[in-house]
Design a protein around this nucleic acid. Structure first.
Lengths: 238, 238
DNA sequence: CGCCTGTTTGACCATTGTCAAGGTGGGTGG
DNA sequence: CCACCCACCTTGACAATGGTCAAACAGGCG
């Protein structure tokens, strides 16, 4: 009755390459995969809600998932948008508590769901796995802190500049890229309204960023970097 | 050459009762304490800065420490204010990276400093310790996420209300309390300027919060709770 | 061809930051 | 013991960033 058979080759590669399971010995992985289900979600479907008991650890196999806090009145703070290979719900399971955030599909997606008890057993029995998780959580903590810093003390245009630069993989002299998802979602991730994103994008034209639809062209990454680091203040870069 | 002798009874109690070391077996604790120093810092002294190699794990023995991000132009986002028994710098050591934040004494304080290698050895050799750390990091992650949520989607008065309620330990019908540190620090922690804190405090008078200096009196905690949860919007609670 | 969704624009407003002054209180030295 | 000083806090007037609402616009897919 193992669920491993439900995983195709692609899925398995995703699992084994994931930051979440990279450090898990094969035995641990087998144990966990024996207590696993696969969830299929359509766009906008909620995977878990705040208040629900955290009895699963999740891993994105295909599609995209957003995790956010607070939805009263449609406002929410996006903690992250997760893609293939990313895990979520881990902290809540480790705390043996209820979820504090909402996880919601942002496209059709396929998600591996490991039962919490199996996951916790694996953690307890395989020190290497536990150590890997420590690194992973440390990184998450780091990332959320970054997020807090940006949102709290950078104005919208700089947050966007910063975000665009993170999308650029190679530090070329001139970069061209495509936004990975809807602008409304990016705006939420950047802690602003879509309208503000639109205006920020327009402001960045002054630093050589042009866009058409989801296509962005950065004339001069270095200039953009300078801009994103500039002391928050007037935009009078005439 | 063990440093244990430098710890007085009080310090030792703090260490053993701390969330950081509670789950460490005695052997692990001994190993770590053998590679430990004690730092004494005066108010405003910096304990570590962003960019410095993370080669120590810290534990507050006495006094208060703030950890914050970004200080360009005096603006910073406070991640937390730590008191006796709280650890810091842990994530950075686990990631084996450089510090991303600044830690600064907020009063005269005494800090236990464990060498990173000894700490990492203990993690690797004592699964129970590692598991305890997983819970601890999960909790930190949770807390920073809370912080992000509050700052991103609650107005100043509600953030303050929320904060005051967290200071109330027993859920009495009427609470009286003393702010634990300067208002300027609280303001920074709440992501606002001191002036805004002052005004927010004044606004809360409408919900039965009175203050004189650092003394706060909450007439009706339930009303305050309602207020802090109210959908962000007008304050016309006439 | 035209709807439906996502995006842009404009005008306006609210919240909060900024700057500059004035209070207040506690502690130190005369 | 008083007076002064300094750090902390408050207040006021103002500016600016970003949110809100409403409408126009674009583009993909039936």
């Amino acid at each position: 009755m193992t669920m491993k058979m439900m995983l195709n080759a692609d899925d398995l590669a995703t699992v084994q390459g994931s930051a979440l399971f990279r450090d898990a010995p094969q035995a641990a992985l087998d144990d966990m995969l024996a207590h696993t289900e696969i969830g299929d979600y359509r766009n906008h479907q909620v995977i878990f809600r705040p208040g629900r008991l955290a009895n699963r650890v999740y891993l994105v196999l295909r599609g995209k998932v957003q995790v956010y806090r607070g939805e009263a009145a449609g406002k929410h703070a996006v903690l992250g948008v997760l893609q293939r290979g990313a895990g979520f719900g881990v902290e809540d399971v480790l705390e043996a508590k209820r979820h504090a955030a909402t996880a919601e599909a942002v496209s059709a997606c396929r998600v591996l769901e490991i039962r919490a008890d199996a996951f916790l057993d694996a953690v307890a029995n395989h020190p290497a796995f536990a150590t890997g998780l420590l690194k992973l959580l440390s990184r998450s903590l780091h990332q959320v802190s970054d997020q807090l810093e940006r949102i709290q003390l950078k104005p919208t245009a700089q947050r966007l500049a910063d975000y665009l630069l993170r999308l650029v993989t190679d530090p070329a002299k001139c970069a061209e890229l495509t936004l990975p998802y809807e602008k409304a979602l990016i705006a939420a991730y950047l802690g602003m309204e879509p309208e503000s994103l639109s205006r920020a994008l327009k402001d960045l034209q002054a630093v050589g960023v042009t866009n058409r639809g989801r296509h962005i062209r950065i004339e001069n990454p270095d200039a953009l970097r300078d801009f994103s680091r500039a002391t928050p203040g007037p935009l009078h870069a005439t």
